[in-house]
C-alpha cells in the first residue's frame, strides 16, 4: 500500500501559484528525493504534506487516511516526522531534552500527574529518557547530550534535528536539505545515516541540492520546477531526462 499519496496538489499565495497539480506517491521503506531549482516549490510541498499549509486543490492521504485539514501534530502522531531547512531546534534546551520533547509526542501524562509526580509519569519519563539516549547513540551525538542545542556546530544541529524527528516514531521521515552547510566528511556520514534509517524500514522523503547525495541514496526522484512536476523516476532515468537537464541548465547533475 502506498504510504503517502498526494494527488494533484495546487496551492497559491496571493495569486502566485507555488504548486500546481503536483502528485507524489511514496511507498513504505523507500528513499524518495524531491529536487528542483530554487523556488521550485519543494519546501512548500513539505509544508503541504505535513499539514502546515492547506492546499487549495488536491487530495492527500497518509496510510490510507485523508489528512487534509488535520493539524500538524496529528499528522506527526500518525507517523510522519520532519526536519526544517532553516534549523528549528529548541535552542535553549539541551540536546537530550530536544529529543525527549519529541518523544513526548506519544506521551499519555498530563500536567497534573507531572506536578504530583505520579509513578506512571516517572515510568514514562524514564522510558523517554532511555529512548532519547538510544537515539543520540544511533545518530552519534551521545557525547553532546548535555550541551545546549544552540551551541552545537551546524552539522551536528542538522543531525540533532534528524534524531528529534526519529523520536516521534515515524513511518515516514521528511528531511529538508539535511546536508546544507555540511562539509564533505559530514555529508558522507549523512548518506550513511539515511541508509541506516532506511534499513530500519522507514521511508524517507528528501529535499536535497547535493546531487551526489541524491543519486547515491534515492530509490526514486521527483523533479519540480516552478511549482510543476517535470519528471519522475529512478535516478538513472531522471538524470538523462531532457526537461530536467533544461531546468538545471548550466548545473551539473
Amino acid at each position: 500500500m502506498t504510504l503517502l499519496n498526494a494527488d494533484s496538489i495546487s496551492l497559491s499565495f496571493g495569486g502566485v501559484a507555488a504548486l500546481s497539480d503536483v502528485s507524489l506517491a511514496i511507498q513504505p521503506g523507500e528513499v524518495h528525493s524531491l529536487i528542483g531549482p530554487n523556488g521550485a516549490g519543494k519546501t512548500t510541498m513539505f509544508n503541504v504534506v505535513t499539514c502546515i499549509y492547506r492546499p487549495q486543490c488536491g487530495t492527500l492521504t497518509f496510510r490510507g487516511e485523508n489528512i487534509i485539514g488535520l493539524k500538524p501534530h496529528q499528522v506527526t502522531k500518525m507517523g510522519m516526522a520532519r526536519t526544517f531547512q532553516n534549523i528549528r531546534l529548541f535552542g535553549s534546551m539541551t540536546v537530550l531534552d530536544n529529543v525527549i520533547v519529541a518523544a513526548c509526542c506519544r506521551s499519555t501524562t498530563g500536567p497534573l500527574s507531572a506536578m504530583l509526580g505520579t509513578p506512571g509519569m516517572k515510568r514514562e519519563a524514564q522510558k523517554f529518557r532511555e529512548k532519547a539516549l538510544n537515539l543520540l547513540e544511533f545518530i552519534g551525538l551521545s557525547e553532546h547530550a548535555e550541551d545546549v542545542a544552540s551551541s552545537l556546530p551546524y552539522g551536528l544541529q542538522r543531525r540533532l534535528e534528524i534524531a528529534r524527528a526519529l523520536a516521534t516514531d515515524p513511518e515516514l521521515i521528511l528531511l529538508d536539505e539535511p546536508t546544507a552547510g555540511m562539509n564533505d566528511a559530514e555529508t558522507m556520514q549523512l548518506i550513511q545515516l539515511i541508509a541506516e534509517i532506511r534499513n530500519t524500514g522507514k521511508a524517507v522523503l528528501l529535499i536535497e541540492h547535493d546531487m551526489k547525495v541524491v543519486m547515491n541514496v534515492s530509490d526514486k526522484i521527483t523533479v519540480l520546477d516552478r511549482g510543476k512536476k517535470i519528471a519522475e523516476g529512478p535516478p538513472s532515468l531522471v538524470a538523462k531526462d531532457p526537461a530536467v537537464i533544461k531546468a538545471y541548465l548550466g548545473q551539473e547533475l
Binding site: 505535513t50 502546515i52 493539524k71 500538524p72 501534530h73 506527526t76 502522531k77 516526522a81 520532519r82 526544517f84 528549528r88 531546534l89 529548541f90 535552542g91 535553549s92 534546551m93 531534552d97 525527549i100 520533547v101 519529541a102 518523544a103 513526548c104 509526542c105 506519544r106 506521551s107 501524562t109 498530563g110 500536567p111 500527574s113 507531572a114 509526580g117 509519569m121 514514562e124 519519563a125 523517554f128 529518557r129 528529534r164 524527528a165 523520536a167 516521534t168
Partner: peptide
C-alpha cells in the same frame, strides 16, 4: 518533568513543537 519541557518547547519554537507531534 518531561511534560514541563513541552511547555518550554512551545516557547522556543511553536511551529517545530507542533511538527514534533505536540498538541501546542
Amino acid at each position: 518533568s518531561h511534560v514541563g519541557k513541552t511547555f518550554i518547547a512551545v516557547r522556543e519554537d511553536e511551529t517545530a513543537a507542533e511538527a514534533m507531534g505536540l498538541d501546542t
